[in-house]
């Protein structure tokens, strides 16, 4: 799994306790030193590992992406590393396989994310309403269960359900005269969308449901007294109140789609027609396995930057909407 966390939370600006005034510069410095010494044993273990696992790899990749291996003459001599500037990035944006993979995940995301979040919001509102009082806990658990399966295991199960001729689903359908393939070129994106929707709808439902449960009872009572209840209350009052949760699920779903890897890779077992550069991650990994480290680094940087820009855009856009 990827680390899931709510990233919109801005730290409250803590009033500085440094208290630096002109007359007490040295006192302030001494105090800062004392504070550092006090906090260091708590902060340093994490921060050092964070530097090793996040900052160094990111910096190293950016550096690597600016170089390339050059073979001399007929390629018989040893390769040497030369500075390439933005050459690898230019190559990535002219690489039809890489651009195609970005287009594919964008297509999958544009259809799958709204469907999944629409369903999740719908289910969360129903779970939150009195309509589903019987069996609410059963539904919550049933919908959440797929999230407990590792991504590749879920994809592995679905790969058996999609397998041409062997799948119990296709056999069931062909027995009533419907012949379908889940792994044809045209069907593949939708088959992958189905796995994603199956795995993540429950997770998003629980997230939105938790936010709905935090709406004070008095708010809904006041609305009901004003004659606003049922679906009207849900759409006019509850949905706007859970905007932060919706935003969070949206950002994580977009991030999740762009880093798509496990599902298509596992699907390859039943879909030999699935390209080895089907998603950007797969494209980058193919470059890696071809020992084209610099190009793999450049593709990773492009993907990481794209995800960051998209997340920031979503947050910006929503912040503006709130201000209006």
């Amino acid at each position: 799994m990827t680390s899931r966390g709510p990233p919109w939370y801005a730290a409250p600006a803590n009033p500085s306790t440094d208290g630096v005034t002109v007359s007490s510069v040295t006192i302030g410095r001494r105090r800062r030193l004392r504070e550092l010494r006090r906090a260091a044993p708590f902060v340093l273990p994490f921060v050092l590992l964070f530097i090793v696992v996040y900052l160094i790899p990111t910096g190293y990749s950016i550096a690597q992406s600016l170089f390339k291996e050059q073979r001399s003459g007929l390629g018989l001599g040893g390769a040497q590393t030369v500075f390439a500037g933005f050459g690898n990035y230019l190559r990535a944006f002219q690489d039809s396989a890489f651009i195609g993979s970005l287009g594919r995940v964008a297509f999958i995301g544009v259809i799958q994310v709204p469907v999944m979040l629409g369903l999740a919001l719908f289910f969360a509102l129903l779970l939150d309403s009195r309509v589903t009082t019987p069996g609410r806990r059963f539904f919550r658990i049933a919908y959440f269960l797929p999230y407990g399966l590792p991504g590749v295991i879920a994809a592995l199960v679905w790969s058996f359900l999609y397998a041409p001729t062997l799948s119990p689903v296709t056999r069931l359908l062909s027995s009533v005269g419907v012949h379908v393939s889940f792994v044809s070129d045209a069907a593949l994106p939708f088959s992958i969308m189905n796995i994603l929707t199956w795995a993540w709808t429950g997770y998003n439902t629980i997230l939105i449901f938790a936010a709905l449960q935090a709406i004070p009872e008095e708010t809904m009572e006041a609305a009901a007294l004003d004659g606003c209840s049922g679906w009207k209350a849900a759409l006019l009052i509850k949905v706007p109140l859970v905007r932060p949760a919706l935003l969070l699920t949206l950002v994580f779903s977009i991030i999740g789609t762009f880093q798509l890897y496990n599902e298509p890779v596992t699907m390859k077992a039943v879909a030999p027609n699935l390209e080895s550069t089907y998603t950007p991650m797969m494209a980058a990994l193919r470059a890696l396995s071809a020992n084209d480290f610099n190009y793999a680094a450049a593709q990773s940087v492009v993907l990481g930057a794209l995800i960051c820009v998209l997340s920031v855009l979503v947050f910006r856009f929503s912040a503006k909407r709130v201000d209006e």
Binding site: T2, P6, P7, P57, Q259, A297, I307, C308
Partner: peptide
């Protein structure tokens, strides 16, 4: 938190 783990996998590997 916004940088997804899979995207970090290749840099880590390098």
């Amino acid at each position: 938190v916004l940088l997804p783990a899979p995207v970090l996998a290749i840099p880590l590997y390098l």
